[in-house]
Write a protein that binds this DNA or RNA. Structure first.
Length: 601
DNA sequence: TAATTATGTCATTCG
DNA sequence: ACCGAATGACATAAT
């Protein structure tokens, strides 16, 4: 997108690096590096071809050797780190050797790959051994489930189940496999290898390192450049094959109907990436999804596989995304924000002319902050220009911090791995409007970095963060150390003011919300108290009524017991009983107010 | 398309 | 008087 133009505009090394980063992200979208730097890419292609050839040769040698003696394969592979790597170009080839490489490195004392192979050969007839590869998949799952939890790794599991059922039902082979598996040593060997294979992938999926592409070869960690250079096909193959090949070299080939008769070594060499992918995906598409593994997702888009390789190398984190195919576009978007840091490029419109920006970038101090504002406010063009002009992010100082946070989007991808299915479903749907949320994010990011853009435009030598967060003294000191023109000073002051005010506004709103929440809470408590008091009052009223009632009955009882000198009862209308503070009760005439002392307490 | 929400910014006030 | 924080009001973008 926007970034594409950058290289042309800025040739500084730093920017080139940034471009690289962007490209890695954009690669997901399907943007070829050539877009950014054609010559560079060509070089990479050449390198790739060379590597491919080398690896192919190596693989051939290995195969021959393997035929002769598997044991040697181990040694060879270990010595040659690239052997495992071979899969990228001709993925298949590496499969058998890979196991040994991984296995042998870590397990010296345990059963060697060669031994395992021998066991297999013993168990199965020569020709079938190869065919068994397909059935192997089925059994492969079993051992994993039984003994090693590692097997549960997202990638292997989906693969395994997918291949076996559709390809070939070979009951005999399965039985044989079961028998083989029953051998504890073999189990151990397989498990370990699976573990090796799976774990790295799982790890890689989350990590940003390119390793993800090459899960099978933990030792082989291609540099970013290497990864990029790897041809799309090679990557694709490596990504997938490596995942299970390590565990069951023969399995994959077996899937392909044509190659059933081939021997394991041949298979490796003969296998073309495309065929492999086709076979694989055709199967996977149906079955894998349930696994939720990244691979399963990929299955949805079998056709896209060819494209995968290109994109995958750049994005280490998601093997799962392979399958997405179209979904890549969306992923691109995600990836973009992260790095695009300023995310300025987001709004970039095709129309945007870079030239104007260049003037900007030159640091035309002419425009003040207010001017900048106007430009920002300007709907399409100006803003986009901005973004284009400084897509790469802010000042070098701030870059690190920002980029760190921004890259977390990578984490988002990681999440994708976690929930590939949903993501994929969404992504796969639309190629053209790949991201709505992305847009939002981008804009948000662009917004955040507005001041950063301005700072970049005026070539402010400080990071925005620094400008905003530095204590007054330090800030003044920093300013004094640099000679800034008026526009720069004004901008720095504005940035600091706005930045602080922004934080203050956020705090203020936060406080306000908290205050509201507190008031609501207080309101609730007051309501509760009111309720309680009302209930209490009603209880008191009822008690009071009861007391009055009892008192009245007592009064009447006492009063009725009183008699005058003649032994007649007093009339309640003429007398009443009253108790004084001292506790004495008197019979008081109601009218005359004449008191007669009846008795004392 | 209008209403709502979130956020940034400015102007002003307060300590 | 100055500075920074706090806050009301407004603008803008997104939902």
């Amino acid at each position: 997108m926007m970034e594409i133009e950058l290289p042309k505009m800025h040739q500084s090394q730093q920017e080139m690096e940034l471009i690289d980063i962007l490209w890695r992200q954009d690669i997901d979208l399907g943007a070829g590096r050539e877009v950014f730097d054609y010559s560079h890419r060509q070089k990479e292609h050449e390198l790739q071809r060379q590597r491919k050839r080398e690896e192919e040769e190596r693989q051939q040698r290995l195969q021959e050797e393997k035929k002769a003696l598997l044991a040697q394969l181990q040694l060879d592979e270990e010595t040659g780190e690239f052997v495992p790597r071979a899969p990228p170009s001709s993925q298949q080839t590496a499969t058998p050797p890979e196991k040994p490489a991984v296995f042998t490195e870590e397990d010296v004392g345990t059963l060697s790959f060669d031994e395992c192979m021998q066991l297999l050969e013993e168990t199965f007839p020569l020709v079938e051994t190869i065919e068994t590869s397909a059935p192997t998949l089925d059994p492969s799952v079993l051992p994993a489930a039984n003994s090693s939890p590692v097997m549960m790794g997202p990638q292997p599991s989906p693969l395994l189940p997918a291949t076996p059922p559709p390809q070939k039902p070979l009951p005999d082979l399965e039985q044989a496999w079961m028998e083989l598996l029953s051998i504890p040593e073999l189990q151990q060997c397989l498990n370990m290898q699976m573990g090796d294979v799976v774990e790295p992938q799982g790890y890689s999926a989350t990590s940003t390192s390119p390793v993800a592409q090459e899960p099978n070869y933990p030792f082989y960690l291609p540099k970013m450049t290497d990864v990029i250079t790897v041809p799309a096909e090679s990557v694709c193959s490596s990504g997938y094959q490596s995942s299970f090949e390590g565990a069951f070299a023969g399995a994959v080939p077996a899937d392909s109907p044509d190659q059933t008769t081939l021997e394991a070594p041949d298979l490796n060499g003969a296998f073309s990436v495309e065929s492999f992918c086709d076979m694989f995906y055709s199967d996977l598409t149906d079955t894998t999804i349930s696994h939720g593994g990244s691979l399963g997702v990929g299955g949805s888009e079998g056709t896209a596989l060819a494209e995968l390789p290109e994109e995958t190398p750049v994005k280490p984190m998601d093997i799962s995304e392979f399958t997405l195919g179209e979904g890549f576009a969306s992923k691109k978007a995600e990836a973009e924000f992260p790095d695009s840091d300023s995310g300025l490029s987001l709004d970039a419109s095709p129309n945007n002319g870079s030239p104007e920006k260049s003037t900007f970038g030159d640091g035309s101090f002419g425009f003040s902050d207010s001017d900048m504002e106007e430009m920002d406010s300007n709907p399409g063009s100006t803003k986009s220009d901005y973004s284009e002009t400084f897509p790469l992010s802010v000042v070098a100082e701030s870059i690190q911090g920002n980029s760190g946070t921004l890259r977390q989007p990578g984490s988002s991808q990681d999440q994708n791995v976690g929930h590939p299915k949903t993501e994929l479903a969404e992504d796969a749907g639309h190629d053209k409007p790949p991201f709505t949320k992305d847009k939002h994010r981008r804009r948000m990011e662009a917004r955040l970095s507005r001041d950063e853009q301005r700072a970049k435009a005026l070539q402010i030598p400080f990071s925005v963060d620094l400008i905003i967060n530095l204590p007054v003294d330090d800030f003044n000191e920093m300013m004094s150390k640099h000679q800034l023109n008026e526009a720069q000073l004004a901008l720095v002051r504005d940035i600091r003011r706005r930045g602080k005010n922004k934080v203050a506004a956020q705090n203020c709103r936060k406080r306000k919300m908290e205050s509201i929440a507190g008031l609501e809470c207080e309101l609730d408590s007051l309501r509760e108290e009111k309720e309680r008091l009302l209930q209490e009052r009603s209880e008191n009223d009822s008690n009071l009524r009861q007391a009055k009632k009892e008192l009245s009955s007592l009064y009447q009882e006492v009063f009725s017991m009183l008699r005058d000198e003649e032994g007649k009862p007093y009339s309640p209308s003429e007398y009443s009983l009253q108790q004084t503070s001292d506790g004495n009760v008197y019979l008081v005439p109601r009218v005359k107010q004449k008191t007669v002392k009846t008795r004392g307490n």
